[in-house]
Nucleic acid binder design. Structure first.
Length: 288
DNA sequence: AAAAGCAGCAACCGCCTAGAT
DNA sequence: TATCTAGGCGGTTGCTGCTTT
């Protein structure tokens, strides 16, 4: 598809998967489990590359996959998460049980992105006509100042970290609602569905369940050297009510942060600067 | 009825990161 | 510490079906 293959794929099938291939892959994974994708095709007798097998399984063959019929609630949630996270499709998908990043990405590119653009500049005929394919550019950091929607995006760097270490010697960064900390904090989330869970989130730092993306329920562990290990297992408990709270205005959300001393009293709610801080490289001490 | 345009979606690609050695 | 490998992610592409002309 326009690019040279990253590895030799001679003799491998490409394109759409057949029912037989699906059956073989499903049977193999049920018998042996996921993982070892590179060896899987050979072992399963499939003429596909491992990446293709993985994608097929994750996006279509998994038993818990929910396809099509994205509900209004889901749609609304996708929009809001996209505002906050940008094109972090896997993270967004992690909050929507049964949905895959690919599906959400496609849904955004074909449906929601258009709506968002139209809302951002409803009077712009030019914009409405720019819905043509490829005209829907994902919101990048550099684009983020160009639309009202995009300005809400907190661009994060795609780094992964399963734990965040906070030294008690220095105060934790002041402005960090846990789920927007950065990719270091929000990557590898426990994939907890945002739409179905209980309501037992303990408060943390004064946040209640209405805090955006469930800022509650951080498991904190005192480490041996006096630091605090914050497990990322922190967003398991957002209730449906708190999901609906996502419908609060962004202003309210960020005011809430400020009220909870997430922001310095004198600071402005400047998402650009927030985003700057969110770059994990800005605080190297936080990276391990 | 046929051709052109458009939209949706599945799949592929390169890049990046974490973990292993 | 450096290198290699596997897995994961987001961007992009091409196919296919539907709609419009």
């Amino acid at each position: 598809m326009g690019r040279s293959p990253c590895c030799s794929k001679e003799g491998l099938n490409r394109g759409a998967w057949t029912a037989l291939e699906d059956k073989i892959l499903t049977a193999y994974i049920k018998a042996h489990g996921e993982g070892k994708w590179r060896n899987l095709p050979k072992r399963a007798g499939l003429k596909r590359c491992g990446k293709s097998c993985r994608l097929r399984w994750l996006n279509y063959l998994r038993p818990d996959i929910k396809r099509g019929n994205i509900s209004n609630d889901e749609e609304e949630l996708i929009v809001r998460l996209h505002k906050l996270l940008g094109n972090r499709w896997s993270l967004i998908a992690g909050r929507l049980p049964g949905r895959t990043d690919n599906e959400i990405k496609n849904y955004w590119n074909t449906t929601l992105g258009k709506k968002a653009t139209a809302q951002a500049s409803p009077q712009s005929k030019q914009n409405s006509q720019s819905f043509k394919k490829r005209a829907i550019e994902p919101m990048t950091n550099t684009q983020s100042s160009k639309s009202t929607l995009a300005t809400q995006v907190i661009p994060t760097k795609a780094t992964r970290c399963t734990k965040v270490f906070l030294s008690l010697q220095s105060p934790p960064p002041p402005i960090l609602p846990p789920k927007t900390l950065s990719s270091t904090a929000i990557d590898d989330p426990p994939q907890a569905p945002l739409l179905n869970h209980q309501q037992d989130s303990p408060n943390l730092h004064g946040h209640d369940d209405s805090d955006f993306l469930n800022f509650g329920h951080w498991n904190e562990f005192q480490s041996s050297d006096g630091g605090t290990l914050i497990d990322n297992d922190c967003d398991k408990n957002l209730s449906i009510d708190s999901y609906h709270s996502l419908a609060l205005s962004d202003d309210l959300m960020f005011k809430d942060w400020a009220l909870n001393r997430c922001l310095d009293d004198n600071s402005t709610l400047d998402l650009e600067s927030l985003a700057h801080l969110l770059d994990s490289e800005e605080w190297p001490e936080m990276r391990h």
